[in-house]
Write a protein that binds this DNA or RNA. Structure first.
Length: 427
RNA sequence: GGAGGGGUGCCAGAGCGGUUGAAUGGGACGGUCUCGAAAACCGUUGUAGGUGCAAGCCUACCGUGAGUUCGAAUCUCACCCCCUCCGCCA
């Protein structure tokens, strides 16, 4: 959400953002509605003030004069019962429109309506040249008895996964590895529920636009979150923090759920796109200052890069275009890791700066050094998400004999094991 | 799941349907005093919107929403949350 005052004063800037982000929103209609509300609100407040004056005088008035005054109060009340519902209705309409106003993208973002305009800005590592015919991750899992991909789909449906043997342990090891790395980087460790109320998703920005991507738990008014970011963003909702409380940098681990509506038939094979996964997430709440935000953006990005480097994966950075970064974002860089079987990079991380867009929705504020109450800025990035990262780890680190090497950095989390080995059958 | 108690400002806590945006205490901040500090004393300590050069004034907010009333923190209803006891339980 943007500040309505900012929108009033900078309609052209906002219109440009709407255009660049390919949003469907009529800003003139929004401004017209806003003007209408301002006028109606003024009228209503004047009647209310008059009604308050009358009501205040009644207890001090002569008993004889009271009848007349009560009648006057009743009359004003009738006027209010005409005005107030209309006002409230218009305000609700404006709120709905305000939720759709995009954040202004930073000047450096490539302008374009979709991901085809994204710009590769950095490449680290070189894709491995195999001197044997490498397998894809599904084949590796099947050959080594590292999962129950077919059986679990019969139980839980498509886009489900079940891991077995060393790979089941590896998933947990990676999550803990990433969690520890982030704690070492000074982030506060957290666990959060994977579900929350509707208003939490609205505050985050996922509702109303992407509501169909979220599972609703019938009969409970709760929804399953696709990322811990949703929950973290509302942790301090409606509070006014002290400036000293900022920046708050959290690393949270949680199971994540995504409906993947509209992705039918896409990435149905293997571990790339599943309904339930695990994610270690970086989330930062900082002062309302673009330089501060930039500083944290760089930090979140560096954290993700150092994790990928520790995992010995080739990756690249994409500066995402205005149309691909999402409604609420100022800037987004996707980190994509190399997938040998597809001969291309695929997204494993996404680093975002939103300035006050989420904070306004969540009413996340702090008191600055001058005592002024301001909306904070928020940022987030993946630290590590499984099982998708397993696709890259399995395929890039495979050996001719079908075993898979474990990066040195993760070996301590695997009890010193250096390779993932075939699951032994027990008769 | 059953029974009860409660949600007021940074915290604790008062509040007959009418000058209560809210007593009192604590904390925090500023000042006096002091070489400095403590103590003591004095003062300050809402959020959002509107209006005004400004001082100020107006409107809303005492968990949330609806209602009763000329007037609601105070009455009614629904919902949310917290606490205690019992039951069940990883």
């Amino acid at each position: 959400m943007l500040d309505i005052k900012f929108i009033r004063e900078n309609p052209e800037t906002v219109k440009k953002a709407i255009l660049e982000k390919a949003a469907k929103l009529n800003l003139d209609a929004l401004l017209e509605l806003d003007a209408k509300i301002m006028a109606l609100r003024k009228e209503t407040e004047e009647v209310q003030a008059e009604a308050n004056r009358v009501a205040k005088k009644i207890p001090k008035a002569d008993v004889a004069a009271r009848g007349e005054m009560v009648a006057q109060g009743k009359n004003l009340k009738t006027k209010l019962t005409d005005l107030e519902p209309t006002l409230r209705n218009l305000e609700a309409q404006l709120r709905d429109l305000m939720l759709e106003v995009p954040q202004i993208p930073w000047a450096g973002a490539p302008v374009g309506a979709d991901e085809s305009f994204n710009l590769e800005i950095k490449k680290v590592g070189t894709p491995r040249v195999f001197d044997f015919t490498p397998l894809d991750h599904v084949a590796l899992i099947e050959q080594n008895g590292w999962g129950e991909l077919e059986r679990i789909s019969r139980i839980s449906g498509t886009r489900s996964y079940a891991l077995k043997g060393d790979l089941a342990v590896y998933e947990q090891a990676l999550l803990r590895f990433a969690f520890d790395q982030m704690i070492a980087a000074g982030f506060t460790a957290m666990t959060v529920p994977s579900y929350a109320r509707e208003e939490v998703f609205t505050a985050h920005g996922q509702f109303p636009a992407a509501r169909d991507q979220v599972y609703e738990m019938e009969g409970s008014e709760l929804f399953l979150s696709g990322t811990a970011e949703v929950l973290l963003n509302s942790l301090h909702a409606d509070e006014i923090l002290a400036e000293d409380d900022l920046a708050a940098a959290y690393v949270a681990i949680s199971p994540c759920f995504r409906a993947e509506a509209g992705a039918a038939g896409k990435d149905t094979r293997g571990l790339i796109r599943v309904h339930q996964f695990n994610k270690v997430e970086q989330y930062v709440l900082c002062k309302a200052d673009s330089r501060e935000s930039e500083k944290w953006f760089d930090t979140l990005l560096a954290n993700a890069e150092s994790l990928l480097q520790a995992l010995e994966l080739p990756y690249r950075l994409l500066e995402t275009s205005t149309g691909d970064m999402g409604t609420g974002k100022v800037r987004m860089i996707d980190l994509e890791s190399w997938v040998p079987s597809e001969n291309r990079y695929r997204e494993t991380h996404s680093c975002s700066a939103l300035h006050d867009w989420q904070a306004r929705r969540a009413n996340l504020r702090y008191r600055d050094a001058e005592g002024k109450v301001r909306h904070a800025f928020t940022l987030n990035n993946t630290a590590l998400a499984t099982p998708r990262i397993l696709v890259m780890l399995l395929e890039n680190h495979q050996n001719p004999d079908g075993t898979v090497n474990i990066p040195v950095a993760v070996q301590p989390y695997m009890n010193g094991k250096t390779k993932l080995e075939m699951t032994k059958r027990r008769s």
